[in-house]
Amino acid sequence: MTGLVAAVSILIVLFALAYGLVVLGISGPPAPAKLRLLGEKYLYYMINPATKYFTAESPEGVSAILWDYRGLDTLYETMVLFGAIIGAILVYREYLHSEPGKTGKIYGLSLIVRAVSKIIIWLTIIIAVAFGFTGQITPGGGFVGGAAFAVVPVLLALVYTLGYARRLGLTHRRALLLRATFLLLLVLVIITPLIAGGYVFQNQAKPGSSFSFPGRFIDSTPLGGSIFLLNLFELFAVAGAFTVAFILLGVIASLKEGD
């Protein structure tokens, strides 16, 4: 019975894909050489001094769409992410108050791996934070930077063990605090235009509201207005959220070993 269900559902999916292939033109490239109208409009308006009411002041297309044109989508996406993290914490909330054994000695991996990992962790932090700071100019941005930053606690826990990471001050409480603080800042950026008499999620000036975040730095480097701030806060919020999840996984693992 299960085999039949599996076969039928797999066949349905493959048939749908094949149908899409036929519609798109079988065995041809999936994308047309000409740009679609929607993409063309985004590219035309995203950093255009001539169209003051439509510009996002960001030369990077994906950041402009993520945090300006379709900002509410991204806000809800962020909510799904934090909802999932909160759900994960709720499943294991009894472990939040438990203390894993404080070992005086560092176990973890060998001396060589530890010496090299120090430098890797340092470089990872620089690259991750740089993603967040320059997301409006070059590809990258808050989510990518945050996910890259989350590699750091994983490396710390794997290479140096969780006890050492805790001694460095990396606890789930601090990570939760980081996440909550930057989420609050994110929401503040979103509602600031509303307080100033504009619209929610407003970035540059719109008809009926002249409020706009600073679009350019002093030397006219694009800041993307609120895009810069939102990328930055998203970076630390996502990093905090993933750190909580990984620390919790590590705590569960270390307690299971102790049994």
């Binding site: 340092w122 620089i126 320059t134 730095f217």
Partner: peptide, 14 residues
């Protein structure tokens, strides 16, 4: 100028 301002901050975090 933007990079000159931002680079010390990023490096400071690390």
């Amino acid at each position: 100028l933007f990079d000159l301002v931002v680079a010390p901050i990023i490096s400071m975090v690390a």
